[in-house]
Design a protein around this nucleic acid. Sequence first.
DNA 1: CATGAATGAGTCTTCATTCAT
DNA 2: CATGAATGAAGACTCATTCAT
Lengths: 203, 203, 203, 203
Amino acid sequence: MVTTVESGDRAKQERRRQILTAAKAVFAEAGYHGASINAIIERAQIARGTFYLYFESKSAVFDSILDQAMTELRARIHRIEVDDPSAPAPQVQLRQQVLSTLEYFMGDRALATLLLTSGSTPEAEASERLEAFFAEIRSLIARAMTTGMEIGLIRKCQPALVAAAMLGMIRGVIEHLIAQGPQPPVDDTVTEMITIALRGVLK
Amino acid sequence: MVTTVESGDRAKQERRRQILTAAKAVFAEAGYHGASINAIIERAQIARGTFYLYFESKSAVFDSILDQAMTELRARIHRIEVDDPSAPAPQVQLRQQVLSTLEYFMGDRALATLLLTSGSTPEAEASERLEAFFAEIRSLIARAMTTGMEIGLIRKCQPALVAAAMLGMIRGVIEHLIAQGPQPPVDDTVTEMITIALRGVLK
Amino acid sequence: MVTTVESGDRAKQERRRQILTAAKAVFAEAGYHGASINAIIERAQIARGTFYLYFESKSAVFDSILDQAMTELRARIHRIEVDDPSAPAPQVQLRQQVLSTLEYFMGDRALATLLLTSGSTPEAEASERLEAFFAEIRSLIARAMTTGMEIGLIRKCQPALVAAAMLGMIRGVIEHLIAQGPQPPVDDTVTEMITIALRGVLK
Amino acid sequence: MVTTVESGDRAKQERRRQILTAAKAVFAEAGYHGASINAIIERAQIARGTFYLYFESKSAVFDSILDQAMTELRARIHRIEVDDPSAPAPQVQLRQQVLSTLEYFMGDRALATLLLTSGSTPEAEASERLEAFFAEIRSLIARAMTTGMEIGLIRKCQPALVAAAMLGMIRGVIEHLIAQGPQPPVDDTVTEMITIALRGVLK
DNA sequence: CATGAATGAGTCTTCATTCAT
DNA sequence: CATGAATGAAGACTCATTCAT
């Protein structure tokens, strides 16, 4: 009995995943408005009603996808620790976070596309949260800049502007990697990105 | 008679502009799918049928807007001339182009929003052309990098990746400026942007 | 031009009427829930979108129908004037009101059916107002009873109960008339109804 | 073995009742169309499939409820016996039947609501039978009137019309009692009702 | 017998587009 | 040229019913 229930639950989770995956792909291809429940259920190979057995509405799936992605990303991105001597060097921490983030996106192209393009999309309330998430990251970068200036690591600059530029740069690179097709050696890319950010392109 | 026709033509052009302006605002606010013909004609103060007198379809206005913007931008962005001794120094040329571009966007926020967010939106064929336009710019930057490397101005780097990063950075900054509200001193911003790109943020 | 506009308005009113009539019939046949927009537009010979050009929603038409009916009925039913010497005798007033009401219903069977059966139907807010309307009438009758008792015309009784019984009786008679088919001589019916109410059926 | 089967049958009957009770409440609250299988099974605390183990369809439960009610009512209402000297006086018989009917309804408000409002509801075939049932009662009253006229007890009147009025009156009163809330002294109400019917409200 | 996941026909509503005036 | 009434395809969502476990 217990086994039955458990396998039932597992099956349910499986279905949910299946729908989420289909929805993610459709949203990535067509955007929130352009995506139709029809397209999602066709891709997921389920009946119309089944969709609504697992999600309350179109915007609910959308929100669910973005929320999960933001959770995953938050787990990969933190403040860089500069005071704790037991922590790795700042540049190592930075590299680690960028690498981890890029790898996450490369592992789920559809999701990356979604994250990059769904800043618009009113209607779905998660969209605002996505914007808030980006603001959060910009703020993280800005504070890193301020700290860096204080400890003499970073040159005098406008932290907010630099943060906006950096986040844009990251997005640009991710877009580039996605457009490239399959697995590029993310490692070298990270090195290049960080170099650009820290030293620019001049000789 | 000729005068009448001419003034008629001028009036027609005026109407077209009026619709385009309204549409631009609506598209910027709601995105391609979220924008309704209704919203556009209300904003333009015209009747439903009149809209279709000037544009074939919803996507036609959208395309028209993007096309015009791309034309304007192409007029502001060129290859940087390094051989011609009569041309200004490369950094001056660069600065001029970036400044002109930013000023164009600041003068038309709605359009800037559109350009930044309409990478998604299938349906409207201009969206692909927009993607092509961005590719064009990335290619311009990439070639500038290659040239720069050849003449020993730029350090060894992956031009395509750098181009993606730079374009992303520009988009990030424009987003930032738009979000800021009214007229910031674009001039300083340009200086900062170029500094980041060329020298990074390290001291 | 004025003529055109006016005829346009008249045409619009005509359309509205056409839809209302169709809707009334469908609601009467199938009840609020059972009635589908499909059935209404088929009966009205219009396209789906046209319906929504004239009414916001299904419940809006329903409300509109009931509201209009209640307005019409209110115009036919008033407090019976017993003090004013210039007014007709109470029994004449009563007869007049009952007659007028019955004639109204006989002139629009579908509407009568609707009024008689839509006490249930939640969802449409007019349904509550209909219930309130019936309560209003019951209250009118109850007060008439009280007054009648005071002036010694009516025997001692429970006004509220009598009111409920009387309203029920009226509804029962209307149902009966509708079921009968075409034009019965409403006049005799009214006489009988009033006689039952005032003197009962005993010899 | 026999015992098991019997207890099984009894349990089955129990389940059936449980579902009927739940359904009755839901139908009374929401009407036939407004009632959902979902609401019924939630109220009955059973699984979706179980419902269909006991009833063929939604309309089948509905029919079953109405049928049972009609059976119960038929057991309470008969022709009034005027010839048999051993029978109670006609007015006593009348009183007994009205009282018994009212008590039945007061003991099951949900059912009363259902009976009063389900005259509409096509779809469920029992609705027609309900209409037939009402016709049956009207016919009973009409024949009582005719008989009454023949034996000089009732004044000259139109039996069919009087029957419709009387049935309407009964329904009006039941509605009134239900709306009142808990147990009013049904006895006095019956007296009033019969008085109205027989002698009217004039002094 | 009981369960509840799955189904898909059907519902209301929106909106880009057409066309008679 | 301008208008706006009319259209109907398409979209999101509900719910009675079925069936494998």
